[in-house]
Amino acid sequence: QTSAEDTRRIAGEMLNQGLELLIFVGGDGTARDIYDAVGLKMPVVAVPSGVKVFSAVFAFSARAAAEMVDAFIEGAHTAEEEVLDIDEKAFRENRLASTLYGYLLVPAVKRYLQGGKECSNISISAVESKKEIAAYIIEHMDKNALYLLGPGTTVKAIADAVKIPKTLLGVDALADGRLVGSDINEKGILSLSQEFEKKRIIVTPIGGNGFIFGRGSKQFTPEVIKQVGRENIIVVGTRDKLNKLEALRVDTGDFSLDQTLSGYTEVTVGYKETLKMEIRC
């Protein structure tokens, strides 16, 4: 069993040995440990793994990280990217709060880097947009289907509209206007899915990086997504959030599934309003 101190010690030893590039696998906590050990003294490539992966220092996926290593070997310049400090107490209380912890040097190839997590927009227009999205989704719900509601304030607006409790960072299940599962994990989802022939997943992209699967929604495992099917995935989001994204992203850990999910999809952005957006892996 290793600790954060082990991570900092080993990274420090690598720095002292004069390594040109440090590659690490982990989440925001590991990124903070690496920052404590090396700061801006050596470049790194951060391979995403874990539940909390919101810092801009991370590559989109392990494959993207490999491309970043190649780019560094070929002489790519480096740039500073943010490392976030996620408030653990707030996270346990179903809130996402973060502050800037520091910066790490990474190969400057933006197309392989995820953006940092942006705070949810709470302006009046954003709130109204979420209400319109909720109204449209509810109007078209199949009372015989199981709806798996992913994390995020846009999805929570759907639960609020039908007056059921919704965990902001968890996955909850809805059927015929009733809550049938709260903060459920993969095992709970698969068990519940056996009771319904029709299944739907409703997700919203993470602001700043556009992930719909693979960041902040680990409960939607490849097995769960395959059971539901690409055609039964409903993506929702406000125009303000989507306008800041280059594309939607997936990194399920199953590259074959990621390729299946890739391509264009419609995103509900208001009442009877949709936008076409590309999903990339």
Rank of each mutant, 00 (worst) to 15 (best):
A31V: 05
D251G: 03
G208Y: 10
Y35K: 09
I23G: 01
T7V: 15
V155T: 01
G75D: 04
I212V: 13
E231W: 11
M277K: 12
N209S: 12
N144T: 11
G116E: 13
V228T: 01
Q114D: 03
A247N: 10
G207E: 11
I10C: 02
I164E: 03
E266N: 12
V51A: 07
Y35S: 07
R200C: 08
D85G: 03
R249P: 03
R8S: 09
G170F: 01
Y136C: 05
K110P: 10
E67Y: 14
E20F: 04
I34W: 00
I189D: 00
A175R: 11
L84Y: 08
R9A: 11
P151Y: 00
A175Y: 00
K272W: 00
Y136F: 14
K163M: 05
D183M: 06
P48T: 05
A161Q: 11
I201M: 10
I234W: 06
I206N: 07
I86Q: 01
D176E: 13
R239T: 09
Y147K: 06
D172P: 13
A62D: 07
F54L: 11
I133N: 06
S256Q: 14
A71H: 00
P205A: 12
D70K: 15
K130F: 03
Y35L: 11
Y147D: 01
K110A: 13
S55Y: 08
D6K: 06
G50K: 10
E231D: 13
D240E: 15
T154C: 04
I225A: 02
E128V: 06
D254N: 13
F91N: 04
I137E: 00
L100N: 03
T265F: 07
V47N: 02
Y103E: 08
E81I: 01
I10R: 03
R111W: 07
I202L: 14
G18E: 13
F211V: 14
S262Y: 05
L192T: 01
A11I: 11
S120E: 15
Q17C: 05
L192F: 07
F72G: 02
D251C: 05
L104G: 00
V228M: 03
N209H: 14
G75C: 03
A76W: 07
